[in-house]
């Protein structure tokens, strides 16, 4: 009998065999886990800190951040009540932005990518998603909203930690990172856009001192409060907060840092996995976005129109996601490239 292992040495060297479906699943796995963590933080901060002018918790702003107003109104009466908002965002399986629906999506993507992800990752996701999908309203009441949100954040962070420590670093990892950084970029722009305009509705000057608690809550929603304090111990102005969340180079959820990470992830795919051809146009888009961010101060962005700029970034991110999909997992039948169809 011939030595099979000696006859087929090239198997391990074949770097370009990541299935498109795996790339897609890894990307969405990361995006949904980021989204769950983010939503948990938002719910918790809203309950504790965000107030309407009459002093009641500002639940409406969550609907705006997630662009969920219409979907919500289709299921529940307006104005939004705390009970309905929590049901909508935690247990409502017909709402795709609820914890339950997102946990389901995480589970499907994790099952699809199960041949690739580490056993430790799978075990934690298996237990986490199952318990989230079984969450009921009495569970929420029993543990309290902040108890639940803390658990959610912790489970998400456990996932990110296990992944960092155990997932093999190949293309699957890079697509996972791409999803994570794109999601963070998107989330931070949504948060800034909505909260800025609910706090400063009528063109008040952005440089003025304002309600410290409310702007603190914006920072807390992005887990940025203490980092910001360290950097800006004296003055909290809207422009400072916006500038920190958009442009800070060291804060893990700032737009600047995440766009840079998207760029370097694409570079890694391009150079290490011979995907130059595919990554080129994607990187160009990112470079343009980064340039608009680097070339303006926060004050300039605000005076030229913060909402318009945030919309521009969100549109660009959506276009980038669509291009990633069309490039790496095209839905339409692919034609065989010539170099491949040469008979073996």
């Amino acid at each position: 009998m011939t030595q099979t292992s000696a006859r087929f040495p090239a198997m391990l060297a074949n770097l370009n065999t990541l299935l498109s479906r795996y790339g897609e699943s890894m990307m969405w796995l990361a995006r949904y886990m980021e989204r769950i963590e983010n939503l948990a933080r938002l719910l918790e901060v809203t309950e504790a800190f965000v107030r309407n002018p009459d002093g009641s918790p500002g639940w409406d702003s969550i609907l705006q951040i997630n662009s969920d107003e219409d979907r919500y109104a289709a299921i529940y009466p307006l104005p939004a009540t705390e009970e309905n908002i929590l049901a909508f965002y935690i247990t409502e399986s017909t709402n795709p932005t609820s914890i339950r629906a997102m946990a389901h999506m995480v589970r499907e993507n994790a099952r699809s990518a199960r041949p690739l992800i580490s056993t430790e990752m799978w075990m934690q996701l298996n237990v986490f998603t199952r318990s989230m999908m079984e969450l009921s309203t009495p569970d929420i009441r029993r543990h309290g909203l902040s108890g639940l949100c803390n658990r959610l954040k912790q489970d998400c962070q456990t996932h990110f930690g296990i992944t960092e420590g155990t997932l093999y670093r190949d293309q699957a990892w890079l697509f996972y990172l791409l999803g994570k950084y794109l999601e963070r970029s998107d989330q931070i722009t949504r948060l800034i856009d909505i909260r800025y305009h609910t706090l400063l509705p009528s063109g008040e000057t952005s440089g003025s001192q304002m309600d410290i608690t409310q702007w603190g809550s914006v920072l807390r929603s992005a887990a940025a409060y203490h980092a910001f304090r360290r950097l800006q111990p004296v003055t909290t102005t809207p422009a400072n907060v916006v500038g920190f969340l958009l442009k800070n180079e060291g804060f893990p959820r700032s737009l600047m840092l995440n766009l840079r990470q998207v760029d370097s992830t694409l570079s890694a795919l391009s150079t290490h996995y011979n995907l130059r051809h595919q990554c080129g146009p994607l990187q160009e888009r990112i470079i343009n976005m980064r340039a608009t961010l680097e070339d303006q101060t926060a004050e300039e962005i605000i005076s030229r129109g913060l909402h318009e700029y945030m919309t521009y970034i969100q549109d660009e991110l959506a276009a980038l996601q669509a291009e990633v999909s069309a490039t790496f997992w095209p839905a339409a039948p692919v034609t065989v490239r010539e170099e491949i169809s040469i008979p073996q």
Partner: peptide, 26 residues
């Protein structure tokens, strides 16, 4: 080895390929 589903495979010129992020692979 990759675990594939039907939609990951495609037949062209009577040869079987899988869809990868780098294009089709035999």
């Amino acid at each position: 080895v990759p675990l594939v589903e039907g939609k990951d495979l495609i037949v062209e010129n009577h040869r079987v390929y899988m869809r990868t992020v780098a294009g089709l692979r035999p």
